[in-house]
């Protein structure tokens, strides 16, 4: 059981006010507990939590490089096995480290079947280096390397489907969650850690600085992403989706309009075509995962 009073991620870290990933770190550690070794990839969280000599981590923690966290974790896990030790190995990396530069090491570690949990805190761009696009950046988001302009509507590609990629590796447990749903997050992290073999949890972690909203709105943004169907919370065991968070879906516009990274879709004029494309993404998600709460008596369509 998760001990919600446990604090293994200490005060004094240098994250921005209202930081989604900082909250993710706290909640992950509540679920993981003290008998955990954390391997971090280079990124915002690594930097804001460990400027020498000020570490925020109260568990054994290691950072090596940007792209090798899954490989380092493989070595840690092998060493623990050889020594007959019981600590759990948890990797925490951002979306750049996970979707892009660390992909090779992650694929190798999942294919080899190490007993570890890989957690991606997904804030949908390279925030540490100044908000550049990553493979996790959603369609049409403005970043410093996918700027909106006269002939651009921002990021040209939809978000890479990382959970599907890792499920295809035969991962016994794959889940998505959000900092906006703390209990869901802690439950999934706990389940991933308890499941033997390589497990993957992707945590949607809104970034006020990178997305362009006030820090007090982090939970609101996280919830809207889920409620619009743009980020689906699901759980997948041995390749089968076993649980999905159902919602009374809101139009994507409610999520988009509160963020500067999508401001170009509304000003100077509304870009109906692009908003419709994003809505279509949400609609596809809704259909694929069946997230829509259906009314018991469907409203009958009038004839003709």
């Amino acid at each position: 059981m998760v001990d919600k009073t446990l604090e293994l991620f200490d005060c004094g870290h240098r994250a921005c006010g209202g930081c989604g990933p900082a909250l993710a770190a706290r909640l992950i550690m509540k679920a993981a507990g003290t008998d955990t070794i954390v391997v971090s990839a280079t990124g915002c969280m690594e930097v804001f939590s460990t400027p020498y000599p000020e570490t925020a981590w109260k568990v054994p923690w290691i950072h090596s490089l940007f792209e090798n966290a899954a490989a380092v974790a493989s070595g840690v896990e092998a060493a623990l096995k050889k020594q007959g030790r019981s600590e759990k190995v948890v990797v925490i990396g951002g979306d750049g480290a996970t979707f892009d530069i660390g992909m090779l090491c992650i694929s190798g570690a999942f294919e080899r079947g190490h007993d570890f949990t890989y957690i991606c805190y997904d804030n949908e761009a390279y925030m540490n280096t100044g908000i550049q696009r990553s493979g996790a950046t959603p369609l049409d988001a403005h970043t410093t390397t996918s700027p909106a302009g006269k002939c651009s509507t921002g990021n040209r590609r939809p978000k890479k489907d990382m959970p599907a990629i890792l499920a295809a590796h035969g991962a016994p447990y794959v889940a998505t969650t959000s900092i906006a749903y703390p209990n869901d997050l802690m439950q999934k992290v706990e389940r991933a850690i308890e499941t033997k073999g390589p497990c993957y949890v992707q945590i949607h972690a809104p970034c006020p600085t990178g997305w362009g909203y006030e820090g007090d709105r982090t939970m609101v943004m996280g919830k809207l992403a889920v409620e619009t169907g743009l980020f689906v919370l699901f759980e997948q065991t041995d390749g089968t989706v076993t649980r999905v968070k159902k919602v009374m879906r809101k139009p994507v516009e409610e999520y988009l309009k509160g963020q500067k990274r999508f401001a170009h879709l509304f000003k100077p004029t509304r870009n109906e075509a692009e908003i419709a494309r994003i809505q279509a993404t949400a609609d596809r998600n809704a259909e694929k995962f069946g997230i829509d709460i259906k009314l018991k008596k469907p409203v009958e369509k009038p004839e003709g």
């Binding site: 919600k4 009073t5 604090e7 991620f9 200490d10 005060c11 004094g12 870290h13 994250a15 921005c16 006010g17 209202g18 930081c19 989604g20 900082a22 909250l23 706290r26 909640l27 703390p182 006030e214 820090g215 007090d216 982090t218 939970m219």
Partner: peptide, 28 residues
């Protein structure tokens, strides 16, 4: 639960008080 700093502490009377040494004032 939602404080990114983890600096809101439950008192003996079960009311919550932030540790202003660490509270960044984000307003969450």
């Amino acid at each position: 639960m939602v404080c990114p700093e983890g600096c809101i502490i439950e008192q003996e009377d079960e009311f919550m008080i932030p540790d202003y040494d660490y509270c960044k004032g984000c307003g969450l």
